[in-house]
Amino acid sequence: MTTTRHESEERHEAAPALLEVDDLEVRFPVYGSGLLRRVVGHVHAVSGVSLRLAERETLGVVGESGCGKSTTGRAILQLVKPTAGSVRYRGEELTSMSSAGLQRVRREAGIVFQDPYASLNPKLPVNDIIAEPLKVHRRWRDGGPERVAELLRLVGLSPEHGNRYPHEFSGGQRQRVGIARALALEPRLLVLDEPVSALDVSVQAGVVNLLEDLQERLGLSYVFIAHDLSVVRHISDRVAVMYLGRVVETGTREQVYESPSHPYTQALLSAAPWPDPRQERVRERIVLTGDVPSPVNPPSGCRFRTRCWKAQEVCAEQTPELTDRGNGHPVACHFPD
């Protein structure tokens, strides 16, 4: 039976929220030269981001490099301290939670980093790398060695290779080790920070298929951060598009990819290659002019206006709110299509 977009949106809203992010802000101080090292400005990395993730759902967060999507992922897990805003996991506020409380939450919420080699300790064998969370959270004595072997099998690796070091594995295998480590404490939520961007295209599909299989088998929820639009389209149920620290459009995968409303989303999809070479040759592209503004001094009003072909006077004067215009497809634009 076919599910309509409206029914899909209603099902999302009715589903219990595992993660809720409201008006999240992250600013980093910029220090001047000299002995006093005074703060002369701030990098506005994340500005008013709001997201919602349901159980067993994948939320894709997509945008250009430097748009703040990785900082958002780290701020969700409190690896980067938010400047303002709210992050609630299963109804509990994380931004004001104690260290002991965060340690408890991190048994259920993990992260997989972009570079599988940099995120693994090169001095430890794989068995010890995967075992580390079990030892930190005092679960090693409860069948720790068996659990490590089980995790290696779960991600498609042989337990016999657990005594090897990270440099003895390929890039795809190292990322599988990182996933196994993130799964050690049986989490419910994983933040996947560009988990396939450092891998060859031929290896990416295997890792993405593994993540989908693990989600089905273990009931996981994902925040999938990436700049590759085709990967996000394949794995995500819902998509949030970010530009210069703000979410400019969000909706179901079909809404964002088939009916993009924000000019920036339209430009991103226009730049993505099409699989049909005949359509690729004749289709029109949207070419953005100018550079991405500095997050230290972002433009007034709409941050995309300096590169937008629709920009008018109101775009410089008023910041467009992320507004649902009646179809469960919020857009932050004064002149959406």
Rank of each mutant, 00 (worst) to 15 (best):
T2H: 12
T2A: 14
E9S: 14
E10H: 14
R11I: 12
H12D: 15
E13D: 14
V21M: 06
V21A: 05
D23K: 15
V30L: 14
H42S: 01
H44C: 04
H44F: 02
H44L: 04
V46S: 01
G48F: 08
E55Q: 15
T58D: 08
L59W: 01
E64I: 07
C67Q: 05
Q78Y: 02
L79D: 14
V80P: 00
G85Q: 02
G85N: 03
Y89V: 10
S96G: 13
L102N: 08
V112P: 02
F113V: 09
S119D: 04
D128I: 00
I129G: 01
I129D: 00
A131E: 10
E132M: 05
G144V: 13
E150F: 08
E150R: 13
R153F: 01
L157Q: 03
P159H: 09
H161C: 00
F169Q: 08
I179R: 06
L183D: 06
L185Y: 04
P187F: 02
L189I: 13
L189P: 06
V191G: 11
D193Q: 13
V196I: 15
V196W: 01
S197H: 05
L199P: 03
D200V: 07
V203Q: 07
G206K: 13
L211T: 14
E212N: 14
D213C: 01
Q215A: 11
Q215T: 10
L218S: 12
Y222G: 14
D228A: 07
S230R: 15
I235Y: 01
A240P: 04
A240G: 06
V241W: 10
L244R: 06
V247N: 06
E249G: 05
E249K: 03
E249D: 12
E254L: 01
Q255V: 07
V256G: 10
P260Q: 03
P263G: 05
T265W: 04
L268K: 09
L268Q: 11
A271R: 03
P273A: 07
P273F: 04
W274V: 14
R278P: 00
R281W: 07
R285P: 04
R285D: 12
D291N: 11
V292P: 07
V292R: 07
N297L: 01
S300N: 09
G301M: 01
R305T: 03
C308A: 05
Q312I: 00
T319S: 09
P330H: 07
P336D: 05
P336N: 05
